[in-house]
Structure formats: C-alpha cells, structure tokens
Design a protein around this nucleic acid. Structure first.
Length: 491
RNA sequence: GGUACCUUGGCCGAGUGGCUAGGCAGCGGUCUGCAAAACCGCGUACGGCGGUUCGAAUCCGCCAGGUACCUCCA
C-alpha cells in the first residue's frame, strides 16, 4: 500500500508509520471513565476519538482487541481529608452501596456511548475486578526494589527509578524540574519524595471500599489498574495506548514507569492523546463545574443550551475537529455542525435514487483516494468530512442532472459513502422515518399536497401557499419538484 | 513559579514555505407563480513587531493574549 497509516506518537512527538507487533492484529488500550457521575460532553471526546481509531483499524483489515477500562475504585479526592476515594464518598452522600453507584453510572455511560454510536470495546475490565493483579504488581515492584512500604501503603520510588530509567520521557518533563518544583502538600510524611505515587493505599477506618492485602486492608493506588489490566489482556508489549491529554502526566507517565520497572522495557509502542473540549475557551471538567452531561445535551436541559442536540450532531461536531486540537463548544458551532450533518445525510439518502449513465463527468477514484489519505494522516477526520462534502456536491449535481456517472463510478461512490460515513466515521442516520411511520399521516399529507397541486394548476396561489405555510407551521418541510412534491416532517 | 501547547475570514475548523480546505451564516445569480431545496459565483483570513528567504499564515526571535499539565478530571 502506497499510503501508510501514520500515527502521532506522544512518545516521539512525531507522526510515525504504524506497524503492529503481530501482523494483522492490533492491541489497543484506552483509559475509560471513572464512574462516579454521569458522562459529560468531555467524556465523549476520547470515546469517539478511539472509536474512530478502532473502526478504521478494523476497516483496514486488522483484528483489533480493544480494551477500555471502567475505573470504579481509587483516585483520591483532590482535597481529601482522609484519603478516601471518590466512589466511597459519593456512596455515603447518597447512602448507597459503592457498587450500586458504580453500576448506576456504568449503565449510564454505556447507554450514552450507544447513543453516540460508539462501539463497545472488546473487553471492558473494571478496577475492582482486578485487585489481585494490582496486588501482584505491587509485590513485583517491591521485589524489584522500585517501591517501598510505608505505614500500610506502598509507594513507587521515582528517584530510585530515575537512576536507571528516564522518568518524564512521555510527558516531556525532567525530573530535576519536577523536584525543583515540589510543592509541599499535606500528609506527605509517608512518602520519601513528593514525586512518589501510591501503588497501594491503606484504607482509613471510615473507608468503605477496601480489600485485604499483604500490607493490611486498603485499596489500589492511582495508576496501577491500567498497567495491571493492559498487561493481563494485551501482553507485556502492545500496540496502542490512548487517553486524554490531561492523563499524560502523571497517570500515563506512571504507567510507563511501572512497565519499565517491572519488565525492563516499555509496554506501549504508540501513545495517543486526544485533546480537550473547551467551553468558553476553558477545559470542560468535573472539578471546574463547567460541564454539561450528555443526557442534558440530548434533552436540551441546561441553561447554556439553546435547545436539544442529537447524539449524531455531537458526534459529527467532534469529528469535524482533529482529535489533537481542542474543540470549542458553543450553541452556534453545534447548530452549524447539525446543519452540515443533515446536508450530508440528505445526500446519502439521494444516492439510492441516482441512475448511472454511459459516461461519467466525476472522478470518484480521486475522492476515495483523498479520503484514505486523510485517514492515513493520523486519523484526520475533518479532512475526510471536507472530502465527503465534495461528494455531496457530486450527488446533488447528479440528482439535478448537471453531472453524469457511469455504473462502476456510481458503485464506487456508494461504497465510499458507506465505508467512510457509516463504517469509519461511525455516523448513523437518525432521521425519523416520519413519512413511513404512520400510514394514515402519510396519506393525509399527500392528500393535502395533491390538493395543493391542483390549486397550483389553477393558479390559485393563495390556497396553495396557505396549504404549504400551514403545513410548515406544523413542522412539515415541503419541496416542490418538477412534476410533484416531496415532504419531510422535522422534529 | 516550572513545562508544553495554542492564536486562521462573522462563527466553527483544516492546512504548515509558493498551488481552492470544508461546514454554518451572509451576498449575487440559475431554477420557481413566490418559496424551499439544489447548483454556480463572491468575500481575498492567518495575534503584533522584527528577521531568514526569490517567496511565510507556514521557519527563527521578541512581544501580547490564551490554554493545559505540575492536584481528581477525558
């Protein structure tokens, strides 16, 4: 293949030619959600980004094992007084079992992902389901001498590690800078250095989620679950690890350190990081309190939302930006995306009505090549979409009789649209089949419009306009054709 | 404070040494009884100041503004 797939690797800060470890197979791990709240718009970014990657790799013929975890334990609260974990705190507030909270938000997340047409991963492991593996990892780090026990907790020894390995190589940090930059945080007495991170945390008495371990009752630390689970399901070395840019440091850096410390080498060949979604130029995040949950988008329930936006409008909106750029939320931008998406879908629907000619005036091969070139250039979905709009113009021109296409060209055009719009970009046509859903309604509207045709024939413009305008008020969009009409019921 | 990144037309958003991005909105035209839809055409954008170059939005420097990470977050 002339066009090779290029992937921007955070590790080298360059686009690299993608080569899987085992030909024909790809192992991919992506950091999933912490299930202590409903998914917000920000969560949709990595989900959609890596869904695109997953879909494209499969389209290229790879057999992909895609692992995306559910974080249901760990991750200390920012200003935690007693180092309690998020799930536990939320559970107490709502007087629920921690696992009940986990189940609620996991279900909610999966439902939202399905709405966004995000394919379920091959394996969706949970942190609580892999406590044993995490304890084993901690033991191994202790054996290797890169971790130490302190008051019932186990910490990773960053300084010792950096004697033999380069801590900070993923995020571009230098250990000297990090050390110089030390902020004295409270309760650091257990750690030898502020750079050290928890592998296992001792559970405080009031802590609800706890498991027995060689160091007493506790729970796994911040960064162990991903490395424990990725190793278990993808091996000691695998192809792609993805996640949000905000996880680069310290989370992913800590993963790199744990791999190198336990295995002596990196686990990940290509590190991919998606950028953030911003709102008023600022990152959308839970702690910033400026997030809007996906359910609110779908229902229009938020002061910042002028109205509801469909899951596909949001998916299209996100895909219209490259995954490594920030994408700024606004009603205006979302509405623009929605209109563009509708235009694309209309053209797709028209494709079935196009008839082939003997000759062709369109270069569909070039269109296809451009689409592949864009995807191969680090999954450049906005350029794919731009190319597809060129295709939209082709389709509309064909429909207007202003262009011609031959049989092979038409087949190719249909294939390009089917492959890129649906299989690769993962868009879905949610247009309510209002016209087909209620036969009586269809007949009544057709009756009215036929009456209008008669009025038009009699040049009774007052009546024909009245019928059209009244239907418009009810949400019907009427289009006159040369010898008839078309209508569609908008929401 | 440290580190990295960003600043493109009314809005969103690609591009990254010379060649049309694209979408939305707007304007003009074709079509239409009038519309809608569609098609054709238009706006000549790259934060500021210098520099390198035959040529820079694209490379370098400085300045301004912004963001991210360093602390849970996608």
């Amino acid at each position: 293949m002339e066009n090779q797939l290029l992937i921007y690797n955070t590790l080298s800060r360059k686009k690299e030619v993608f080569k899987s470890i085992i030909p024909g197979h790809v192992g991919m791990y992506v950091c999933g959600p912490t299930v202590y709240g409903h998914a917000h718009l920000g969560h949709s970014r990595p989900a959609i980004t890596f869904d695109l990657v997953y879909r494209y790799l499969m389209h290229l013929g790879y057999k992909v094992r895609y692992v995306r975890n559910i974080t249901d334990v760990g991750h200390l609260v920012a200003d935690a007084d007693e180092g309690e974990d998020k799930i536990g705190q939320k559970a107490r507030v709502e007087k629920l079992e921690p696992m009940e909270v986990v189940q609620t938000y996991t279900n909610s997340y999966r439902r939202n992902m399905k709405q966004l047409n995000v394919l379920p991963p091959s394996i969706e492991p949970t942190a609580t389901g892999h406590i044993i593996e995490q304890i084993e990892l901690a033991k191994k780090l202790l054996e290797k001498g890169y971790a130490y026990e302190s008051k019932g907790s186990v910490y990773f020894d960053v300084e010792k590690y950096s004697n033999n390995f380069e801590y900070g190589k993923l995020s571009g940090r230098k250990i000297e800078d990090l050390q110089a930059n030390t902020r004295t945080l409270e309760r650091q007495d257990e750690k030898r250095s502020s750079l050290d991170f928890a592998i296992w945390k001792k559970a405080q008495p009031e802590h609800i989620m706890r498991w027995p371990s060689p160091w007493g009752e506790g729970f796994p630390g911040w960064h162990t679950e991903c490395i424990a689970m990725s190793t278990k399901y993808l091996g000691e070395q695998f192809d792609i690890h993805g996640g949000g840019m905000d996880l680069m440091f310290p989370h992913h850096e800590a993963e790199v350190a744990q791999s190198c410390a336990t295995l002596g080498h990196d686990s990940v060949n290509y590190w991919m990081h998606n950028n953030m979604i911003t709102i008023n130029g600022q990152k959308m995040g839970k702690s910033l309190g400026n997030f809007i949950i996906l359910d609110d988008f779908f229902e229009g329930n938020h002061p910042l939302l002028e109205r509801a936006y469909s899951p596909m409008a949001i998916r299209f909106f996100i895909l219209q930006a490259h995954y490594r750029s920030t994408v700024d939320f606004s009603n205006e931008a979302l509405q623009a995306a929605e209109k563009g998406f509708e235009r694309l879908m209309k053209a797709v629907a028209l494709l079935d009505e196009i008839h082939a000619s003997e000759t062709t005036t369109l270069d569909v091969d070039a269109l296809e090549a451009e689409c592949y070139a864009a995807m191969n250039d680090d999954f450049n979905s906005p350029v794919v979409i731009a190319n597809l709009f060129d295709g939209v113009r082709m389709i509309n021109s064909l429909n207007d009789g202003k262009a011609r296409i031959d049989e092979p060209g038409l087949a190719k055009l249909k294939k390009v649209f089917n492959d890129f719009v649906f299989d690769i970009l993962g868009l879905r046509n949610d247009e309510k089949e209002a016209s087909g859903s209620d036969e009586v309604l269809v007949k009544v509207v057709d009756l009215l419009l036929n009456t209008r045709m008669e009025a038009k024939a009699a040049k009774n413009w007052a009546l024909s306009d009245k019928i059209r305008d009244e239907l418009a008020k009810l949400g019907f969009e009427v289009k006159d054709k040369k010898d008839g009409f078309e209508w569609v019921l908008k929401k």
